[in-house]
Structures are given as C-alpha cells and as structure tokens.
C-alpha cells in the first residue's frame, strides 16, 4: 500500500477541472506540483484542505493507472466539503495522502467480483471498476449493483453504459422515481438476487451509508457469500489519517490505519454494538 511521503504536511494540488455531477456533488480533477504522480490503491483516501477552512477525508476515485491525475468526487454537506466542491479550475487545495487500507483488488483476481454501491459510495469503488476493466481477463464474472436516491442523484451516469460494454453487469436502482426512469425502484439489496455471480467464489465490495452496508452484508451472507470475502468501507471521524489522533476508532480498529476497508467477518460483531 502506498504511504504518503510526508504525512503531516499538505502538498499543493491544483484543480484542473471541475464538474457538477448532481444537485450536491462535484467531481474535481487535481494535479500536484510538476504533475507529480500520486500512486494509490483503490479505496485509499486523501485529506483535502481548502486553505484555512479545515480538512476532510475524501476517497480517491480516479484511475489507478493514471496516478498523476487525482480525481475526487465530493458531496457538499459541510463547511469543508462545500469549500472543496466549490474549488474552481486553477484553485489550489492542500492534499495529504494517500492513506488507508483499500479494496482487495489483488485478492479478487481469479474470483467473481460483486460491487454494491449506494449514493456517493460509488466514488471509492470507481478505481476498483477501472482497474477490473483494465485487467478484465484476470477476473471472473463481475457485477455492479448501484442504488441512488433518485435518477438525478446517480453518479457517473455517462460511464455506466461504457462499463457495461466492457464486460461489467450493471444494475441500478433508485428509491424514488417517476415513469421516465426505466431502471429498478427499491433498495439496492433487492438487486442482489439478479447479480450474475457465483456467491461461493465471489469477492464482494460494498460502499454506502452504514445502514445500507449492514443490510447489504447481511443479505449477501444469507445468500452464501462468505463473510471473509465481503468487504465494506467504513466512515468515521478521520482527522489525522495517520493513526495518531484516535478519532476514527471503531472498537478494536483504527479505521484510518486498519481500514477504511474491512471484512464483514471482522465487522459483523461490531455492527451490533450501538454507539461504538
């Protein structure tokens, strides 16, 4: 896993492009000084710092094969994420990273792959999809199940068809829709029976709100996906990102160091504990 060179100090990351994806979500492309590459593993995150405002952990959602082009999809929900989302081309953000332990893309080689994403949870999984499609032959069958609030809230709509064409089964569902939407309506767990993968030989990667991940993992294990091969990416209050500040503790784990990606086998006993 790539380690940040000087983890405490922000580096300059210039915004090259910004695109509004949905009502409250933007995707930024960034570049370090001198277009220095920032090698990362899918599932790792950076700490982004709009000058003087504060830092926020944001998953890297670019292509691992293009480490000089740093891509982040940001949902503007707080002061810091709003300032990041508002960064226009030419603006410079502070960046620390990459941090954390990401998705098991290497362990998944030779397996079927099931990706289940909810809302902005698709962003941290995008590098997995790009890596999988770049080495499509190394994996078995592969499916993406994606749930969003409404069709207008779905991310990367322009890419889903391209992914489909390159050998990824893509099923989408939304919570609320009118007749213009031709995909499914309902929670993302309802798509699981339709995923064309063999549970026993599948590595599953799940990202979304806590509740969505918990119910998804339960449904997956009920359908024969081994808990040791169901991986979730957790969100807690990550501050230092280098296992020194204690904020992201989740029971016996420090999520910034041991996660954010952990197996359901490890998480299951913890998720039943309230306010852990």
């Amino acid at each position: 896993m790539a380690l940040a060179p000087d983890p405490m100090l922000p580096r300059r990351a210039r915004v090259l492009a910004s695109r509004q994806d949905t009502r409250d979500t933007w995707t930024l492309e960034l570049e370090l000084d001198g277009a220095a590459p920032l090698p990362f593993a899918p599932g790792q995150f950076n700490m982004l710092w709009p000058f003087g405002v504060g830092e926020a952990p944001i998953s890297i959602c670019g292509d691992p094969a293009e480490p000089a082009r740093i891509v982040h999809t940001v949902r503007a929900v707080g002061a810091v994420s709003q300032a990041i989302a508002a960064a226009a081309p030419g603006a410079v953000l502070g960046l620390r990273g990459p941090f954390g332990h990401g998705w098991p893309t290497v362990q998944a080689i030779g397996h079927d792959v099931l990706i289940v994403a909810g809302g902005i949870g698709l962003a941290p999984l995008r590098p997995v999809i790009l890596e999988l499609l770049a080495h499509r032959g190394q994996y078995g069958r592969a499916a993406l199940l994606y749930g969003a609030r409404t069709p207008a809230d779905a991310l990367y709509g322009h890419e889903l068809d391209a992914w489909r064409a390159r050998g990824l089964q893509v099923l989408t569902t939304v919570d609320v829709a009118d007749r213009a939407w031709t995909g499914a309506v309902g929670v993302v767990t309802r798509l699981i029976p339709r995923a064309e993968v063999d549970p026993a030989r599948t590595v599953a990667m799940v990202c979304g709100p806590d509740v969505m991940m918990r119910f998804t993992a339960q449904e997956l294990t009920a359908r024969g996906f081994p808990a040791a091969r169901v991986h979730l990416s957790l969100e807690r209050n990550m501050r230092c990102a280098v296992a020194l500040c204690g904020h992201c503790q989740y029971g016996p784990t420090l999520l910034c160091r041991d996660g954010p990606v952990l197996t359901w086998e490890r998480l299951r006993p913890l998720t039943s504990v309230r306010e852990l």
Binding site: G54, C240, C245, G246
Partner: peptide, 22 residues
C-alpha cells in the same frame, strides 16, 4: 487523542494548524 484545528488571520492569507489534546 488529539484534534487539529485550522486558524486563519484576519487577512485570510496566513493559516496555522494547531494540535490539541482531545
């Protein structure tokens, strides 16, 4: 455990990051 907080001066051109016990 510690928290960090960022401060800026009134011009907004100078920022500091402080670490405090939390």
């Amino acid at each position: 455990c510690t928290q960090v907080s960022d401060t800026t001066d009134l011009t907004g051109d100078h920022a500091e990051r402080w670490r405090r016990w939390d």
